[in-house]
Design a protein around this nucleic acid. Structure first.
Lengths: 230, 230
DNA sequence: GTGTCACTTTGCGTTGCCGCAAAGATAAAG
DNA sequence: CTTTATCTTTGCGGCAACGCAAAGTGACAC
């Protein structure tokens, strides 16, 4: 399926790219619907393609040798994902699963090197994208190292609200299904502890919970928990 | 100071680069000795240059708002560091300090974009380098999320031994000064806990400690602590 | 409707690790 | 050599968070 370049033209990744080049690039791409719950790629599988999320949400998680799940990140619309080749890896480091019905665009992984060699601009953009990921990872590492669970959960919830919050009645509703288990896997704790924390917050009117639902009512108060200083 | 290209030709970053291009690149570079303890760049400072470590060791650490130190990574010879521009950041995210007398090569940050645009090959290499960093960061995140302190310390010590271990009397001596505090900052714990763990290991003959010294005698046993399964 | 399944909440006992504190060791400086 | 500063070790009390367990709740299928 051919894809209109207007859909992706404004993404950071394709910024400053020659229109002709962008057209050529999109000609090689394939768009596809991914129903909720479906897996886009599996951890350890050979990386045959790299992807861009157009619409929806994905959760990328890793399983440890002992079988513990860790959520690496949530993929939001406009995000590039599964670019293992860029990282010089033969396989996908995690599993990507659609949290809601989604639409993705994919390129054959074999195209990556050629595309990048012919588009230094794209290489620079891709590098910056990966750089942002690195920054995020370091931020989370810093949090995990120095902060207690409640603060980490506050940070995680704020990030979710910022990236995936749909305004609703004075608050922000996380617009995809998310479980306490998910949040636990994002913050390195257990679903029990997350549940306790959210219950406490709900008691103070900061958030509203529900089955796979989360709504943030008082961003400022959460920010104060996340960062007592500033 | 001009630098012989033979010094850097075999680094992953410069692999497959045209000799002429490499020569041109090195012509813009400056080499410099950095005595132990000296700071190469400070967290938050505007990024005017990016660097390559030729010889020695650096420690890169960040300070949180509350003043807590976190060690982001140890820079080993051949590693690129301080490439904030590539990550689209105006400033350095951490402070780099020489753990031993070191030699670094630096380029004006302004060169980065030009260099990369004219050398897609270099862009790809740089991306892979950053990709490896991202992988490392995710590995550490996974460890922090799921493993108890002793295992994390075991992993950290093994990584140090692998990257900076000099064979000595059947074991591996970490060849730069490292404190328990440093190890604590790498693993997200306290120097007290690290000290207790290392003492216990020393009692079993796995390692030998000392003031800013660390020697690994039984890598296999450590690996077993780090990964009980495999 | 009713049953089933997945997710959430809450209680309670346990514990791994921190935080404080103080003493011991080692290296460098005078 | 003595002094000083830094790094390390060890003890002990406390608590945040885990692990287990069981009950509660909403969503969906039939």
């Amino acid at each position: 399926m051919a894809i209109d370049t207007s859909v992706v033209r404004n993404l950071p990744l394709f910024r400053k790219l020659e229109p002709a080049e962008l057209t050529r690039l999109m000609a090689r791409a394939t768009a596809r619907r991914v129903p909720m719950g479906e897996v886009v790629f599996e951890q350890g599988a050979t990386a045959h393609a790299f992807f861009l999320l157009l619409h929806g949400r994905l959760k990328v998680s890793q399983v440890t040798q002992e079988g513990q799940q860790v959520m690496v990140r949530v993929v939001h619309p406009g995000d590039l994902f599964g670019f293992a080749r860029a990282l010089n890896r033969p396989d996908y480091p995690g599993t990507a699963r659609a949290a809601v019905d989604s639409v993705i665009v994919s390129w054959p992984m074999a195209d990556w090197d050629a595309v990048v060699e012919n588009n230094p601009r794209l290489a620079i953009n891709a590098m910056q994208t990966i750089g942002e990921r690195l920054d995020e990872a370091h931020t989370r590492l810093r949090e995990m190292s120095t902060q207690e669970v409640e603060r980490r959960v506050a940070h995680a919830v704020l990030r979710l609200a910022e990236k995936a919050g749909r305004p609703e009645g004075g608050g922000l509703r996380i617009d995809f299904p998310i479980t306490r288990q998910d949040i636990a896997e994002m913050t390195g704790t257990t679903l029990h502890t997350v549940s306790r924390i959210l219950s406490a917050w709900e008691g103070q009117g900061l958030v509203e919970g529900g089955r796979q639902k989360l709504m943030v009512n008082d961003t400022a108060a959460l920010a104060r928990i996340a960062d007592p200083e500033s």
